[in-house]
Design a protein around this nucleic acid. Structure first.
Lengths: 127, 127
DNA sequence: AGATCACGCTAGCTATAGCAAGCATTTCGC
DNA sequence: GCGAAATGCTTGCTATAGCTAGCGTGATCT
């Protein structure tokens, strides 16, 4: 494994992300560690960027914080932006959603994308 | 980590999966190892279920075999059916959304899915 | 036949993930 | 004020991920 990758840089990012999520959820380090099934000294090291957690641990933390595992993986660099099929196709194919829910979710998604596109266009135009 | 989990059972599964993919792609162990950036003895151990690869290594192997990373993660037990190739993975992988938007969309999606589950329970109870 | 190459593997090693034991400090309840 | 509880962290440890060096075997080349 390449030592020039500087995993501690990524580790700091995912660590701060986890700490922010935990604090926003209003739970202590020990409480989250217990829910996630990891030791509290280890969670402290992860949050401070001193240890790089495995995907299994990230999965457990995501579950304990009620955050989707793919979002956690994305932040940890374990998933690319390019992975997975398109959101709209996935929404349409989901068997657990009603038609009304699919429509609502798709509309919210496209609103978000239009927000980003508008911001990007504005910035580019001004530049 | 619990020793009763028997990670070797899962390891055998992902190992066979990788070996099948490799053979179907018509490449040797050394060729795949080189493309994936791992050592060939290690890849041999992984394929034979003797070592449990990290998510980073799985990502590299998936890329070398031109298989989507979520599919590989699903097979390795690092993603659930529910957040594997599906809506949550697609949301996480979307390059056009901010992290905040991804989280909001994921939470709305899971709220919808919980509504469906509750409705289903109610219907079942009444029957 | 002998040399070389490609293959998949074994053996032994280092770095680190993740833990238990215990510490210092702060907060809480009496 | 005091003792208990809760918090976040340090220290030292074990298990294993991933590697390098080298092996035995079969295929290929001269």
């Amino acid at each position: 494994m390449s030592t020039s990758d500087k995993p501690r840089e990524i580790g700091k990012d995912i660590g701060y992300f986890i700490r922010d999520l935990r604090r926003n959820a209003g739970v202590s380090l020990r409480q989250l560690a217990e829910k996630a099934g990891v030791s509290n000294p280890y969670l402290s090291q992860v949050e401070r960027g001193l240890r790089k957690p495995s995907a299994e641990v990230l999965q457990q933390i995501a579950s304990a914080l009620r955050v989707s595992t793919p979002v956690m993986y994305l932040r940890a660099g374990l998933l690319d932006d390019r992975d997975g099929p398109g959101v709209l196709a996935a929404i349409a194919a989901d068997p657990d959603l009603t038609v009304a829910q699919k429509q609502t979710l798709s509309q919210i998604y496209e609103t978000f994308r239009r927000e980003i596109t508008r911001d990007t266009d504005t910035i580019e135009e001004e530049t």
